[in-house]
């Protein structure tokens, strides 16, 4: 079969049916009785939630909204709209208190202030970390910078030293791990399964937190490219506001899209290039179909390979030795 611009198109009705059966079988096999989904107001969790309602009915699905003080208010609004549309009363679990208990904000802000001594979240400063944005035209490696937004709206970006990068990421990952703990509280209190919301892009390239949003019982959409998630969202009737919202991390205090934080190019382009790579389409041929140069496509091929390789440990179970003595 030839690679075309339409190669990523799937039959949404058929795929929905396949995933619903998969969810029903797995939940039954593990003796669970329903699903818990963290709904963020984003497209991925919306699709997983809608699939879960199809699989188990609205009375067997718990939808949990887990904002913290940095979250965009629009996220909760969209999550409520989604839950209402599918006949579920969402639960609100504000994790700000838990994060203060973990000292998340102080640890993160301390590292940002190492780079920008003027940074003060209490005075209205906001911050985010970003990767270079020119992957198609520049082969720069994935090295983070930190951007602050001052109370007057002006922005400044500086390279992030290794020590501060690690501290910011470690502190911020407390958010995803607090959410995971909250979801498991609700799942265990009902004997339900926690649904993962990572798509293929996030799962395979390692854009998730180990034992955070990666800590789940089932991965319903980890085999689907982001473009295909949008196709399912349309089929399932996910609210338009969610379908049209640009993908965001909603993790740092300054607005941050997923391209800035991780993927470095629009998902529609990334998906086509990645699909071509997975199907062994030579870079020049993929480039001709997508409308790029072979060099640009090769750059993305290389970036995908590097991200998958360097995040392998996220997807592995903890290694252990075989028993040294047997009968």
């Amino acid at each position: 079969m030839h690679f075309t611009k339409d190669s990523l198109n799937l039959d949404p009705a058929l795929e929905t049916e396949r995933i619903v059966k998969f969810l029903q079988q797995n939940v039954r096999q593990t003796m669970r009785r329903g699903a818990v989904v963290g709904i963020s107001g984003g497209i991925d969790s919306a699709v997983v939630f809608a699939l879960s309602v199809r699989a188990f009915g609205p009375n067997k699905v718990v939808a949990v909204m887990m904002p913290d003080k940095d979250s965009d208010k629009l996220s909760e609004q969209l999550a409520r709209e989604l839950a209402k549309k599918f006949g579920v009363e969402p639960m609100l679990e504000d994790i700000t208190g838990a994060l203060q208990g973990f000292d998340c904000y102080r640890r993160r802000d301390e590292a940002i202030a190492h780079v920008f001594p003027e940074y003060n979240a209490d005075k209205g400063y906001k911050a985010k970390i970003v990767l270079p944005q020119d992957l198609l035209d520049n082969a720069t490696l994935n090295v983070f910078s930190v951007t602050i937004v001052r109370p007057d709206g002006s922005e400044e970006t500086k390279p992030l030293p290794a020590r501060d990068m690690l501290q910011i990421i470690a502190a911020t990952n407390l958010k995803q791990r607090s959410r995971m703990s909250t979801l498991y509280y609700h799942a265990e209190a009902r004997q339900f399964s926690v649904m993962g919301t990572a798509n293929k892009n996030e799962h395979d390239q390692g854009f998730f937190v180990k034992y955070g949003d990666g800590g789940v019982d089932i991965q319903p959409i980890a085999h689907l490219f982001k473009s295909q998630i949008y196709q399912l969202a349309k089929h399932l009737g996910v609210p338009e506001g969610i379908q049209k919202r640009p993908p965001t991390t909603d993790t740092y205090s300054a607005p941050q899209n997923q391209e800035e934080f991780f993927f470095r190019l629009p998902y529609a382009t990334l998906d086509q290039i990645w699909f071509a790579k997975e199907n062994n389409v030579p870079a020049p041929e993929a480039a001709r179909v997508i409308g790029l140069t072979a060099e640009q496509v090769q750059r993305v091929y290389d970036d995908i390979t590097r991200k998958i390789r360097t995040t392998d440990f996220l997807r592995l179970l903890p290694p252990q030795l075989e028993a040294s003595h047997t009968l």
Binding site: L141, V143, F144, P159, L160, P161, M165, L166, T310
Partner: peptide, 23 residues
Amino acid sequence: DSLGVVELVEFLQTQFQLKVDQQ
């Protein structure tokens, strides 16, 4: 990995007294 790259950048800057631009 990406952390190793950052550490190498910092090492070259310190060891050889260079300023490495992100580009």
